[in-house]
Design a protein around this nucleic acid. Structure first.
Length: 215
DNA sequence: ATTCATGATTGGTT
DNA sequence: AACCAATCATGAAT
């Protein structure tokens, strides 16, 4: 391109040389100027595009470290699935795809979410996963609505009256267990049946458990 | 400015 | 390969 342009300039100068004497030295000088200018522009262009690429890369690939909360609806859907499969909260690949589509996120995000949810659920069995009852009630209501035809007062349970004091005073193991079982589980369990095996109260509170994660 | 909540990443296990 | 556990990093709430 540079050569092409200099060629044009040379032609122009030759044309002008008819009306005005132009020395070959002058032409050489012109060519030199053009060459330098082209080099400068070239490197500058290279630099700026390189910068742009770097910026774009950090925008896109580093988007991983950027965390954007999921929409309320998405978490709603995910929680609904989680709590309605509490006995075996391991969605199949297909189910993951379904959830992903429904939530507008990727399958790996769904997997991440379930991973986080499982572990974080397990960490506070003791302290109210009242959420469970919320969603259980919701799905139960839906189910009840489906079968609420002839038989009169067969209505759903209420939500509800466990005033687990907030002021973490009592050890309410029983209640937590109750909560777990209170959930309707149509579990056609496959594998991880024992995902909450035995140990309820792993190393629960007290002591140097200065971890984060409350709720 | 701190603290809590939460999605993503990492390292190790099965 | 999927999972768990710990940790990181950011968004939102205080």
């Amino acid at each position: 391109a540079c050569d092409e342009f200099t060629g044009h300039v040379i032609n122009l100068l030759r044309e002008q040389s008819r009306s005005r004497p132009i020395s070959p030295a002058e032409i050489e000088l012109m060519v030199g100027i053009i060459r330098r200018k082209f080099r400068a522009i070239e490197t500058q262009l290279k630099q700026s595009t390189c910068e742009a690429v770097m910026i774009l890369r950090s925008r896109f690939l580093d988007a991983r470290r950027k965390r954007r909360n999921f929409s309320k609806e998405a978490t709603e859907v995910l929680n609904e699935y989680f709590y309605s499969h509490l006995a075996n909260p391991y969605p199949s690949e297909e189910a993951k795809e379904e959830l992903a589509k429904k939530c507008g996120i990727t399958v790996s995000q769904v997997s991440n979410w379930f991973g986080n949810k499982r572990i974080r659920y397990k960490k506070n069995i003791v302290k109210a996963q009242e959420e469970a009852n919320m969603y259980a009630a919701a799905t139960a209501a839906a189910a009840a609505a489906a079968s609420s035809s002839t038989s009169g007062p067969g209505q759903s349970a209420s939500v509800d009256e466990h005033s687990v004091g907030y002021g973490h005073s009592g050890y309410d193991y029983d209640e937590s267990m109750g909560l777990q079982r209170a959930v309707p589980q149509l579990s056609c369990s496959t594998d991880h049946e024992a995902w909450m095996a035995g140990g309820i109260t792993p190393s629960s509170m007290d002591e140097p458990d200065r971890k984060r994660s409350k709720l």
